[in-house]
Design a binder for these strands. Structure first.
Lengths: 139, 139
DNA sequence: CTAAGTGCAAAACTTTTGCAGGCGA
DNA sequence: TCGCCTGCAAAAGTTTTGCACTTAG
């Protein structure tokens, strides 16, 4: 399990202020089994223990943490963007189109992609999501 | 190049009325080299020759054509959804994070995915997009 | 002390929806 | 003619932004 302190250290090193709001957002990623969540999910969770935090602040900080490389942005086929810790191992998802559940899959297509398919394109990141029906919803 | 008539025929067979708006939308997909475009792109193009068509109508019809299986919806990491003809060969994209250009890539990761990775999940569709810098923007 | 961060409210942007009138079959 | 379709306008859902106040360092 990832620790909070090293993340806070990263903020300090970049001269970014460590506010209670930021600590709450970071903590919320460490405490969940739900690996990826939307800004609203995160806000709803934090509000329980920090009633005055605004959704705007959550959005602003998620963006900042993404730019710092601490969070990764996921596009799971919904209108909302989801976030997860980049320290969480690289993986992709099986997303159920009926119940919305997303299972992780330990397979990355990039390893099979030959250089000549990509030519002079300089890869920074990629997405690979599989949509369909999960075991429960098939029944 | 795909023809307009067979597409119109499909609408008729389903009892869907063939309006000038629908013909304009379908035609716009046949005439372009830009394979995938957003609702707004399509609307802007059609308005030139059909000044009264509304964006709402474009949205409604893109949705319908997607449900009929004539169009495919693409999530290219933008807020806007893009569409392309499903008859256009299956492929994925190299998307430039600087200029937004998307090149097609003839490689599909699904062929390398072993059944046991997916287990009982029933695959319906998938997305695979590679983000980075295109040759021009690397310079 | 002061620049960065926050909360509030309003705006921006994409997409959806209700409704009354229009038009294809 | 009749019901599907369209345009208009308004709403909905997510994310961004301007501004004045607060606060971490």
């Amino acid at each position: 399990m990832q620790e909070l302190q090293p993340l806070i250290q990263q903020l300090k090193e970049k001269g970014i202020k460590v506010t209670p709001q930021r600590q709450a957002i970071l903590s919320s990623f460490l405490g969940t089994t739900n690996k990826h969540r939307s800004a609203e999910d995160i806000h709803l969770e934090i509000v329980k223990s920090f009633p005055t935090i605004s959704l705007d602040t959550v959005y602003r900080n998620l963006g900042m943490l993404r730019d710092l490389g601490i969070l990764r942005e996921l596009n799971l086929g919904e209108r909302r963007v989801h976030y997860e810790l980049t320290s969480h191992s690289h993986h992709h998802h099986l997303i159920c189109t009926r119940c919305g559940d997303a299972q992780e899959i330990q397979y990355c297509p990039l390893q099979f992609l030959e250089q000549d398919k990509v030519n002079k394109f300089k890869i920074q990141s990629h997405s690979f999501e599989i949509f369909g029906l999960c075991e429960k919803c098939t029944k």
